[in-house]
C-alpha cells in the first residue's frame, strides 16, 4: 500500500493525533465516565489504522514498529493479569487492593484504572496487529504467492466415505 491522495494525507495529518488523544482520554477516564479500556483501545487502533491507510504500511512503521505492536499486545494482557494476580496480596484473585480514593475523580477506584490502561494497550496494539496481518494476507493473495487462495486448495482431500 503506497498511501492515498494528498487530501487524505493532509486530513489524516490533522486528525490522527486528535483521534489518538481521544482514545487515551477514553482509556484514562474509563472508570468515571462511559468507555474504558476496550473502547479507548479501539479508538487508538483506529488512529493507527488511519495512518496505514493514508500513508501506507511503510510509513506506519515509523509511527509504531510492528514488532513493538505485537510485543505490547502481549505485555498489555500480561499487565492486566498481573493486576489480577496481585489481588492475592489482599486475599484473592482480582481483589481491588489499592486505595479507592474519592469517587468520580481521576485518581480513584484502586486497580480499575490500571486494568483499563492494560486493556487499552492490549486492544489498541492487538487490533492494529490484526489489521496489519489482514493487509499482509491480502497482498500475498494479490501476488498469488504462497497459494493461499489458489483453487488447488478447494479441490483436495475428497472424503472416501
Amino acid at each position: 500500500m503506497q498511501g492515498m491522495s494528498l487530501i487524505v494525507k493532509n486530513t489524516t495529518r490533522l486528525v490522527a493525533g486528535f483521534i489518538a488523544l481521544f482514545g487515551i482520554y477514553i482509556v484514562l477516564y474509563g472508570h468515571v465516565s462511559p468507555g474504558g479500556g476496550f473502547a479507548g483501545g479501539c479508538i487508538l487502533a483506529g488512529a493507527l489504522v488511519l495512518i496505514v491507510l493514508a500513508f501506507g504500511e511503510e510509513y506506519s512503521r515509523r509511527v509504531l514498529p510492528h514488532g513493538i505492536a505485537k510485543t505490547s499486545d502481549c505485555l498489555g494482557a500480561l499487565a492486566f493479569l498481573l493486576v489480577a494476580i496481585a489481588g492475592y496480596m489482599a486475599g484473592g484473585f482480582f481483589v481491588n487492593f489499592l486505595d479507592r480514593g474519592e469517587a468520580c475523580t481521576l485518581f480513584s477506584a484502586g486497580t480499575v484504572p490500571i486494568s483499563n490502561l492494560a486493556i487499552g494497550v492490549k486492544v489498541g496494539a492487538g487490533l492494529f496487529s490484526v489489521f496489519l496481518a489482514l493487509a499482509m494476507f491480502r497482498r500475498s493473495g494479490e501476488r498469488g504467492a504462497g497459494g493461499l487462495l489458489s483453487p488447488r486448495s478447494a479441490a483436495h482431500n475428497g472424503d472416501e466415505s
Partner: peptide
C-alpha cells in the same frame, strides 16, 4: 464493599 461497580 465498594461504592462503584468495576468497569469492564
Amino acid at each position: 464493599p465498594h461504592p462503584v461497580p468495576p468497569a469492564e
